[in-house]
Design a protein around this nucleic acid. Structure first.
Lengths: 178, 178
DNA sequence: CCTACCGATCGGTAGG
DNA sequence: CCTACCGATCGGTAGG
């Protein structure tokens, strides 16, 4: 709190005329970020499209929020542990609701044949963890824009590393020789 | 330190007859884990095989170390930030060496056509971040063993979610009709 | 490994 | 928003 006061150019005690406690700052950051993530995915899912397309847009929306303010993102992703009850439980249930949005996209992609995946819960977790690492290395002046990062992430998570197209084209290539 | 002493059944001051400082504990955990990760990947890469196979084994080895002791893994992944110099720099260079092992596998897979990926550095980062999330939810008595987790992770990261085989088989299926 | 401490720092309050 | 302060807790030491 002394550091914060210093950065603001006021005395430490004066902070408490603006907020009730140190934890209030944590709460505000965590729930403001949660709100931003929900607004972003709402916009991403607004139009009716294929699961692949909805997932692409959800990934781009998530990366956009993450990179907008990497410090707030770090608080949202790590410091929520220090929330006291009942905020702690509220946070957890919001996070699960958000993850469920990704699970739902994956589930619909499985049922219509767009996706093949062993476990939708596991898949959602792996996707989100891949996205969430971004905040640790993203630099606003780096060579990749948030949109480019999202494109690369989408490419990796949807298609994987394996050159499957190539392998399958090889498999079928004898059929194509004139 | 008081909590630690309590758990050990001794007085707080007595801890200091075993260690020099609180930070020494952090150092020991961080560098012991680093050593374990290197030993695991050394074993995984010992035999000459395809890049796909080496990556599979490296993933399994990494997940094995992560799940062996999730609390130490959490310290290794997050608390290293509090290391003071020169340990902080040493840690960072070890981590980069480790990541380079994954980049090297990916690079060799690209050059022999096993992998197709836009950026090997980006790919290595995304793989590792997908793996490193495991420590937050893994439970020794859960339904997935470390080996099963590794298999699922490998499947997702190598092949992605998209049902590409199916899509390509559809593309070529007219060629197969008798 | 313990008793007896210490200086520094922490989040926060009273009263203006 | 400030001055003046407080009780609690922190990592750690001296000396046995």
């Amino acid at each position: 709190m002394r550091d914060l006061a210093n950065a603001l150019g006021i005395e430490a005690a004066s902070i408490y005329s603006h907020i009730k406690s140190k934890e209030e700052i944590l709460q505000r950051v965590c729930f403001k970020m949660a709100q931003e993530f929900f607004e972003a995915i709402d916009a991403a899912e607004a139009t009716e499209r294929s699961a692949t397309d909805r997932l692409k847009r959800a990934i781009a929306a998530h990366v956009q929020v993450l990179t907008q303010n990497t410090e707030a993102a770090a608080v949202f992703l790590h410091e929520w542990r220090h929330l006291s009850e009942p905020m702690h439980s509220t946070y957890l249930s919001l996070r699960d609701k958000y993850e469920a949005r990704f699970r739902e996209i994956i589930r619909s992609g499985i049922s219509n044949g767009e996706f093949t995946v062993p476990d939708e819960k596991f898949a959602a977790l792996t996707i989100l963890s891949g996205l969430n690492w971004t905040h640790t290395w993203y630099k606003p002046n780096g060579k990749m824009t948030p949109a480019e990062i999202a494109d690369n992430l989408t490419e990796m998570l949807l298609n994987g590393l394996s050159t499957k197209k190539q392998a399958l084209q090889d498999t079928y290539s004898h059929l194509n020789t004139p």
